[in-house]
């Protein structure tokens, strides 16, 4: 191609000669592209006279609201000698279709605004130990340390999960799945209900067995196979279910009230103290009864009763393999009224 003969041939062509003698820029080069923001055009029929365009305008005196005497309409008028063609007035115009019009780029396109993210990471202020390891781990500086807490800039975050992997505290950086939030909530509620039921049935059995020491830690296991099957009906994603369970069990703390009727002397102190009237006195049977459905597990009855009828345990949970380990710790709160 670069031989002199080729050059000679190229120069001798008629087209080339024409171009040489009448050199002109291609009109396409000089024309404004369709995304170019020209001076906005105003369609005064659509205007609602909100004045948003005048506030958005960075150039003084470029846009003014003018009242038309004849039609009594108020609409923006653009002074093109001041206008800097930024198009901000068009961006903020709230009418649909817009009163002000400029190039096709007058809205930042929606598909570019939303990042295709499945997970969102947030720092748990309560668990965070402020070691700031995550700040170094983040490759795109989406994390910052402000007001004595770690903050995640969601517009920058790309959900790589490096911050969560390096975090020495389990659960201090949380991974939240944006989609299926309602289903996750449903699973959480179901999980708590299952755990409550399991604890309440098991603790009755343990309590009534001979040789039971109320000051000792109680350990219960909940196999998850049955629960998983139920959860799969709500959300067919095993990974997501396990993560939801893990997140819940890591932070969940539950007060458990037991009721030992044999010790009761019917003093009825607890009946008045109960804030939800879950404890009632049955005259006919001469019994003080507790309704577990109404109970808030506030432990007031536990602190009031002089005979130790109610027992208070604090339950904590740990997800291990395919079962939840439940530890019931006897409460350290002092008992007996005054």
């Amino acid at each position: 191609m670069s031989s002199p003969i080729w050059y000679l041939y190229e120069f001798a062509r008629k087209k080339w000669l024409e171009r040489f003698l009448d050199a002109r820029t291609d009109p396409e080069i000089a024309a404004a592209p369709s995304r170019f923001r020209d001076f906005p055009e105003v369609e005064k029929e659509l205007c609602v006279s909100c004045g948003a365009c005048t506030f958005a305008c960075p150039s003084p005196g470029a846009i003014k609201l003018v009242r038309d005497e004849e039609s009594e309409m108020i609409f923006p008028v653009i002074n093109i000698s001041s206008c800097i063609r930024c198009g901000f007035c068009v961006e903020v115009c709230p009418t649909d279709p817009k009163t002000l019009k400029t190039g096709e780029n007058y809205l930042i396109m929606e598909e570019y605004q939303i990042l295709p993210k499945e997970k969102v990471y947030i720092a748990d202020e309560y668990l965070c130990i402020k070691c700031k390891k995550c700040l170094d781990a983040c490759k795109i500086d989406a994390l910052s340390f402000q007001d004595n807490k770690i903050q995640v800039d969601q517009s920058k975050c790309v959900s790589c999960g490096d911050c969560m992997n390096i975090c020495p505290v389990k659960g201090a950086i949380k991974e939240i799945y944006i989609s299926n939030v309602d289903e996750q909530k449903e699973i959480n509620i179901m999980l708590i209900e299952t755990l409550e039921k399991k604890i309440e049935t098991d603790i009755e059995i343990i309590r009534t067995t001979p040789g039971f020491d109320p000051d000792k830690i109680i350990k219960i296991e909940l196999p998850l196979a049955e629960f998983m099957e139920k959860a799969r009906e709500i959300l067919p994603n095993d990974e997501l279910i396990t993560k939801t369970i893990e997140k819940t069990t890591d932070r969940l703390k539950m007060n458990i009230i037991t009721w030992n009727e044999d010790l009761c002397n019917k003093c009825k102190l607890c009946v008045d103290e109960c804030p939800t009237s879950a404890i009632s006195y049955n005259k006919e049977a001469d019994l003080v009864q507790r309704d577990p459905e109404k109970c808030l597990r506030c432990s007031i009855c536990y602190q009031t009763c002089p005979f130790g009828v109610p027992g208070l345990y604090i339950a904590r949970f740990l997800l291990k393999d395919d079962k939840i380990l439940i530890t019931l710790n006897p409460s350290q709160i002092a008992i007996g009224a005054e």
Binding site: F39, S59, P60, I80, S81, S82, C83, I84, R85, C86
Partner: peptide
């Protein structure tokens, strides 16, 4: 043509040019 974004309150700009010399053609835009 008008001082543009520099025509703020308290600024001392001599715009527009037509205050100083006769202008034959104006090209707006920023």
């Amino acid at each position: 043509l008008s001082g543009g974004i520099f025509q703020q309150e308290g600024e001392k700009v001599g715009a527009p040019v037509s205050n100083h010399i006769p202008v034959d053609a104006e090209v707006p835009g920023c």
